[in-house]
């Protein structure tokens, strides 16, 4: 699916730009996009290194396993394929908590650590595992209690009630997250049924 979306975006862009007579924007935009990508990756080096160090400490102290045990009832339902008390569960919970609190520079490293653990269970395959799909479904639809960035922008442009959107945001995310969990289960079943 991602192959079609990716190719579709590129083909459509070049056709539209060509037809509108401003094909020159394509080259510039392509290199700008590549530039941004490298910048994002490089900025990850620092926070990734930091959180990997902290997580190693947490693991050595037995804290990751303890956290995994604590959330066992919920994670056993969501991630049936992950063994009990596996460190991946600890990292997943920490990633989702950081998301909820809006701590983006802790959330991403935790998420990548969780993916590393899940990839070990996946035997270093090139294909996503079921647990990875579920984790990303939760992660991309995850609730943030206080959307600080947008509240800041509303305040900047003189809103009388900058936090008026917090309730509506929580409602809309809750709907999205519910559908994400249902869709994940449904697609998993369809996928496995088709394969067998």
């Amino acid at each position: 699916m991602v192959n079609y979306i990716w190719l579709g975006m590129i083909v459509m862009s070049i056709v539209v730009a060509g037809a509108q007579g401003n094909i020159e924007v394509i080259t510039k935009a392509a290199f700008e996009g590549a530039d941004t990508a490298v910048e994002v990756s490089l900025s990850l080096i620092a926070i990734m290194t930091f959180w990997l160090g902290i997580m190693k400490l947490a693991e050595a102290a037995g804290l990751v396993k303890a956290l995994a045990r604590l959330v066992q009832p919920v994670t056993a339902f969501l991630f049936p394929s992950i063994p009990r008390n596996h460190p991946a569960l600890g990292a997943i919970v920490m990633n989702l908590s950081a998301n909820v609190l809006g701590l983006s520079n802790a959330a991403t490293p935790m998420g990548l650590i969780a993916m590393q653990e899940l990839q070990k269970l996946n035997g270093n395959s090139r294909t996503a595992s079921e647990a990875m799909c579920t984790f990303l479904a939760l992660n991309t639809s995850c609730l943030t209690l206080i959307p600080t960035t947008i509240i800041g922008i509303r305040l900047m442009y003189g809103s009388q009630d900058p936090t008026a959107i917090v309730g509506t945001t929580i409602f809309a995310t809750a709907c999205g997250m519910t559908v994400a969990i249902i869709a994940d289960r449904t697609f998993r079943r369809i996928y496995n049924w088709r394969r067998s």
Binding site: V2, L112, Q116, R126, A128, C133, T140, A183
Partner: peptide, 30 residues
Amino acid sequence: QGTSDTTFYVLTLYFGSVGVRRYRYAVATG
């Protein structure tokens, strides 16, 4: 703006960091 995350960016970044190239149904779910 305050609701869902940047789905495609997150999928690319997370799967990319462990070298996964086939996303199966993750895009559809997102």
